[in-house]
Design a protein around this nucleic acid. Sequence first.
DNA 1: TTGATTATAGACAGATCTGTCTATATCTAG
DNA 2: CTAGATATAGACAGATCTGTCTATAATCAA
Lengths: 189, 189
Amino acid sequence: MGRRQHLIDTALKLFYEQGIHATGINQVLDVAQVAKQTLYNHFESKDSLVEAAVVHRDFVFYGWLADRLSQCAAGKEALLEVFDAIHDWFNNKVPMLNRFCGCFFINTCGEFSDPEHEVHKRCAEHKARVFELLLGHARKVTRSEAEAKNLAYALSLLKEGATIKAHVEGDLEAALSAKQIAARMISSH
Amino acid sequence: MGRRQHLIDTALKLFYEQGIHATGINQVLDVAQVAKQTLYNHFESKDSLVEAAVVHRDFVFYGWLADRLSQCAAGKEALLEVFDAIHDWFNNKVPMLNRFCGCFFINTCGEFSDPEHEVHKRCAEHKARVFELLLGHARKVTRSEAEAKNLAYALSLLKEGATIKAHVEGDLEAALSAKQIAARMISSH
DNA sequence: TTGATTATAGACAGATCTGTCTATATCTAG
DNA sequence: CTAGATATAGACAGATCTGTCTATAATCAA
């Protein structure tokens, strides 16, 4: 793997586990076993490394989730698969997502609350992309665009809520609990 | 107000708006207009100031929410009031909660992911307390303890989800959208 | 082989961080 | 009034932070 990608991977893991402001450039370099100048050849500042890490997390997470859903029948099955997928994530069954430490995008917005900040915007974009993924499947089980949006919206609230329950309260069954609620919602549409 | 409480209020505001690791002790002192030694007379370290800020936020937020709910009929009305209350919060209608920057406890767990950390535990306790508040009202509109728990759980997922939508995506209507979903859930119980 | 690019270790500057210390001033209770 | 407690400003130590610089080494294409 190229140095640039290796730095992004290492930074992402540390940012995710420790928080961004709590993680120094030097620790990233120590763990990645890369020289400082190499980092500054590829990134103009820590901030731009942070941005690259967020973009990469979106790439990995969205790709993983879309792949999980694509292995199910479109519609109800795929919508429910969301919760089985995040259940695996919460319980550390998905190495590519790193040890579960909540949602990286939520955590990052907690450190960059200004919605005009580039990093915050990237996080919002990720959530919008995931919403579109749900919406595509919600359309298959509803009779109008408005209904589809309502369903996708409700399911995304459940997904975010479960992620919080799992991380803050250590509720490792949160995804399965959310799945049951989701199932009732989908049925009633 | 005593110096100790003034320091906690100031620290809480800055921690909430900027994140904890991004906020230095010196900035807290500058804003609070308090001498450094005074801080270290009242708190043995930054960490203990952080803990005090989290405990205080629980006190303020829980007290505020419980008060809002207590002004409604117990049960369905109170459960729906949760979403009107957080709608006001999201839209900066509640000065005592400071400018909306997401949920302080969620943000803080993003910076202290280790569930054994004292600060993380305090955040979990807050969520548990809010859950109990919902549960009390859920019991009024359900026929069994299991149903009450399910309802309170579902509503708390919606509340957390709406908070995330509002903060990360800037969706200021998230609370009202969540309220509609909540209303359907309560009715179907 | 040669010449350009890229990576290396690590010193360094300058800023900022937490926490301690000192010496002075203000408040408060008896 | 007085004595003890509390607050003050700010210097200071020592650690850590980001980012720059240098001089050397490895890599790779022509």
